[in-house]
Write a protein that binds this DNA or RNA. Structure first.
Lengths: 360, 360
DNA sequence: TTTATTTGTACAAACGTTTGTGCAGATATT
DNA sequence: AATATCTGCACAAACGTTTGTACAAATAAA
């Protein structure tokens, strides 16, 4: 009760205080200049911290800052940007915020970017290349100063065009092998290779991969890593199925697999979403991990530990990837060429849990 | 091999085609005007689809469109916005993109907003009110036309100020009871009440809540729902512990609970993150759900089904919340007052799974 | 032929900033 | 006392659009 009273009081106070200012008109630099009795030039310089540089007097600075505060001035970034050409904005385009892997990247990038005084505009292409193009177009017309993108298809011209325009950009996670666009990603070959090797060491020979988007570079590298590991072990039959980084794909492919007469003894899921689909199918068919079948997956996520059987996974260094992307971008923005290598692959890390059984 | 050759070819082709245009200078409406031999006025009108309205000749339209395409023209939104005052931008501020609940909201809002030809700027306040204020400030200075916010603390003045400036806004999930700011959220009282009732019906009387941010309205409503259900069942000892919607909080509080001599028979976690913390603690202490203890949680998420024990939960209508928020915002933007009610609570839905045991 | 109407287009101002430069007045130097 | 330097500030142009209005030329009406 007391608290409620108190809150109501504070609301009343607020209303009394601010009512006079509830004009819809936004205040601008001009209003401040008038109130302070100085020119807009001086106001601009003070508000941008260039007072020293232009030798604005102390008392003038005071007057201006006070006026700005009193009028509750909020600068119009568009006007400023129009003049300076700088937008203090970085764009991030991911295929799906619903995928915890990308949400994690988005969250980290957002935090990193803020440290530089920039803000992030996040776009979600919904794994649709046409939407990706639209978003990119939108973002460029908003004068972004840099772009971090997880391309969702195999078309690259629209991205290359942005790069050619001189906007610093970097591909993250997915990239294009043939182009010289900068990227930072996981060493997917290595990850797939070691996961496969681990399965083989545990006695598995009948292994099926459920892959994601086929043309995507990470997927291609993973397939190659898988194949190489199998061949080096002298196993000739390699099964690779599926075509999407989605729960749905994992589910359907697993359902099909389970109906074969020669079931694999292990499944290698190429993403956490695919793995989730596998588990769903297993549940329906009453198949236990790892007793009936072994499962290993790309991508780590907190919830993996809490599943019925904690999943052995190839963890990608999400945090490092984000940091490197940002570092690269801002070194470009500052024309600081200290970073020469522009194509980076980070080592993944296998986290062994309980989803792979040693057989025979 | 063939494919690689082909790709290299296409890259070469691209480079030949675009090299001539690789000027760093951005093309503007003026360049088009020159190329088309018309005035910038006419160019602007054609490019904005106002050709009919201003009776621009067909051939002129053709010439302009062609020139724009050839020059790869990308309009400068900042300049346009400066003139028109419209930014076609909606802002969304969430406490943490890492929380799948908010990532889900962000993803949906993003998709909905695009349908209106607007774009979304997503801000992440990291559950920090100061950051929230900074972000909000940033966003307002980017002339956002609308705001969707999940406030992360109990200060509301900065939000009210935005509202008073005439920017349409709506609080989502968390809101302020005392104010008349619009909001759409879940009926948290109802959700907590029915969850508690369900536990009681299953014979539980020693129930402990692990709550989230205390001052937040959803949390307060949930506590009240819990209390009321307990009291109506004649149970007088209600334990409510914790103070944050985080995994950490769930983990620590559970650890503490397990050390008491009178352990509760059921835990009611106020968010999926808290529940995850509980599970982590249970694992460490070798406590099984629901054999040793029952667990029920707020928020639904796909992975809940795949846990060792699928978790019974109070699912919030995330999709509906997002849609209503957008609908409200755009009806305001179009000065369409058809929507009068501006404070909406949606019914949650209990999804009964396997984490609550019937005792005695 | 003259006047009225329509058609197609351009001029110029405005949006709110930033910034190169210029110019007083005060102070220091000779 | 005359000149040089420094201090503090303002003028005005520019950024790339949009838009109210004006104004020719072409066509129609009288």
């Amino acid at each position: 009760m007391y608290i409620e009273r108190f809150e109501n009081l504070s609301i009343l106070l607020y209303k009394r205080l601010y009512k006079s200012r509830m004009s819809t008109q936004k205040v601008n630099i001009n209003d401040i200049a008038k109130k302070a009795g100085l020119s807009i030039t001086t106001v601009s310089r003070v508000l941008n911290g260039k007072a020293e540089q232009y030798r604005i007097g102390k008392k003038s600075q005071e007057k201006i800052k006070e006026a700005a505060k009193e009028l509750n001035y909020i600068p119009n970034q568009f006007a400023a940007n129009l003049r300076t050409g700088r937008s203090n904005t970085i764009a991030l385009i991911v295929p799906s915020l619903n995928n915890p892997f990308f949400a994690g990247i988005a969250s980290r990038i957002n935090a990193e970017v803020r440290k530089f005084g920039y803000i992030t505009i996040i776009g979600d292409s919904d794994e649709n290349q046409e939407i990706e193009k639209m978003e990119l177009h939108q973002l460029v017309s908003r004068n972004i100063e840099g772009l971090i993108i997880v391309p969702c298809g195999n078309e690259w011209e629209h991205i290359q065009q942005v790069y050619d325009q001189g906007i610093p950009l970097i591909c993250v996670d997915r990239y294009f092998e043939e182009l010289d666009l900068p990227f930072v990603s996981t060493d997917n070959y290595e990850g797939a290779y070691s996961a496969t090797k681990y399965l083989i060491e545990n006695g598995h020979t009948a292994i099926t991969c459920i892959q994601g988007v086929r043309q995507s570079t990470p997927n291609k590298r993973r397939v190659k890593g898988f194949m190489d590991a199998m061949q080096q072990a002298g196993i000739t039959t390699c099964n690779v199925v599926g075509d999407d980084f989605s729960v749905q794909n994992g589910y359907l492919e697993t359902k099909l697999l389970l109906q074969q007469k020669n079931r694999p003894t292990a499944i290698f899921a190429f993403s956490n979403t695919i793995a989730m689909g596998c588990i769903k199918a297993f549940k329906e068919e009453n198949i236990r991990i790892p007793d009936d079948i072994s499962l290993i997956t790309f991508d780590d996520h907190p919830y993996l530990d809490y599943l019925a059987t904690p999943l052995t996974c190839i963890a990608q260094p999400v945090s490092d990837i984000s940091k490197i992307a940002i570092k690269f971008l801002f070194s470009r923005l500052n024309d600081n060429n200290e970073i020469k290598t522009k194509q980076v692959l980070l080592k993944p890390k296998m986290k062994i849990k309980e989803s792979v059984r040693r057989i025979i």
